[in-house]
Design a protein around this nucleic acid. Structure first.
Length: 387
DNA sequence: TAGAATT
């Protein structure tokens, strides 16, 4: 049930088009919708073989049962979006996206503290494994913060290419409780690259594992493995950014060009696939809507509002996150409910940040069969609910 | 020989 991510955003980024690039998204989404959250996680240049380490079990009954840590968030996801996503489960006491202190960049993880322990448990059961863009998020109980759990991540190299994640864990588990493990694999072939990571619960456990395993040969292996503390990726990011700011002030804004190229490619794709031209020049949509009085379907000033029709009475926000999240940045979802019965009135709204991603979601999800219903998905018009 | 896991 591997979900090889063929999502549209990553295809746009790579420029490698299939005839129908969104079929991968739909296939992955259907796997998720029918079987619950998945546990595969794809990152730049590497794939996690397995990342399922029973998030409901915090390993300590003394821990807080309301405070969650959320890992593998998309780089561009904001704290507000995090709050919106987890707020769809229940009342949130506090929510924080952790950012690099220097650059302000998201470090890809955050914390959500619920008022009610039941909502925290529901969030784990509902949102752990949710696909958002190229990521599969992990939701688990946060351990009490302390110095003893910091810097407990190990980098392991020289692993036999045949070694599985389970075998890797078996070797290291004698030194303490493993929080996460991963073996990096080649994106194309899926073959192990012979390197991986082991995160222990405690720093001291990691230290003991280095002492016991660095330079040792695993059972049946011909070469010894190297075990050392992993570098901190956030430090690398800071250094890279600062270096770039210092050395090349004229290259500080590379993103818009990439986005422009991406928009043209999407526009071409929609033209090829549907024989339609975008109604608005892709380059100027954002600028146009900043002008007062100009009215573009679906555009609410802070994003693109999408109308989703023919939802079932028991539909909730999580289904909208699951359907639209894989296509790109979603800032808000809302199911419209009857005031008295609290049942869905058959429709809802999704707000997405980027036109391209919203357009691809609509093109892919309009006509999508959800249960025994066929959904109608379009940009919101001004006749209906204001999101 | 390189992941955004403790606010």
């Amino acid at each position: 049930m591997a979900v090889r991510l063929c999502d549209v955003a990553s295809l746009l980024r790579s420029g490698s088009w299939a005839a129908e690039p969104w079929t991968g998204v739909i296939a992955a989404m259907e796997t998720q919708l029918s079987n619950g959250p998945t546990c595969n996680n794809t990152a730049h240049g590497s794939t996690t073989i397995n990342n399922c380490s029973s998030p409901v079990d915090s390993g300590n009954t003394e821990d807080s049962k309301t405070n969650l840590i959320v890992n593998y968030l998309p780089q561009n996801m904001t704290q507000e979006e995090l709050k919106s996503l987890f707020g769809s489960i229940g009342e949130i006491e506090s929510c924080k996206l952790v950012r690099d202190k220097i650059t302000g960049q998201s470090l890809g993880y955050g914390f959500v503290n619920y008022v009610d322990t039941k909502d925290a448990e529901k969030a784990i059961n509902t949102l752990n494994g949710l696909r958002l863009q190229t990521k599969t998020i992990k939701v688990s109980y946060a351990r009490p913060s302390s110095a003893s759990i910091r810097d407990a991540n190990l980098y392991v190299s020289g692993l036999p290419k045949t070694m599985t994640q389970k075998e890797l864990e078996q070797i290291f588990s004698q030194y303490g409780r493993i929080i996460t493990s991963r073996i990096l694999v080649d994106q194309v072939t899926g073959v192990s690259r012979g390197v991986g990571f082991i995160r222990f619960d405690k720093r001291i456990e990691a230290e003991e594992a280095i002492k016991g395993l660095n330079g040792q040969k695993p059972p049946g292996a011909t070469e010894p493995i190297t075990v050392k503390f992993a570098n901190n990726p956030s430090q690398k990011t800071s250094q890279a950014v600062l270096s770039q700011l210092y050395h090349s002030p004229n290259r500080r804004y590379p993103a818009p060009l990439a986005q422009q190229a991406q928009r043209f490619r999407l526009d071409n794709l929609l033209n090829i696939a549907y024989g339609v031209k975008s109604r608005f020049p892709p380059m100027t949509i954002d600028g146009m809507t900043s002008l007062a009085g100009i009215n573009i379907p679906g555009h609410a000033g802070t994003g693109w509002c999408i109308f989703v029709y023919n939802l079932a009475p028991d539909a909730d926000e999580s289904i909208l996150w699951q359907m639209f999240g894989p296509f790109g940045a979603v800032t808000n979802v809302k199911v419209i409910r009857d005031f008295n019965t609290n049942k869905c009135k058959g429709f809802g709204f999704v707000t997405m940040t980027n036109y391209d991603e919203a357009a691809m979601a609509i093109a892919s999800l309009n006509g999508y069969r959800l249960g025994d219903r066929v959904l109608q998905v379009s940009f919101k018009t001004n006749k209906t609910h204001k999101a």
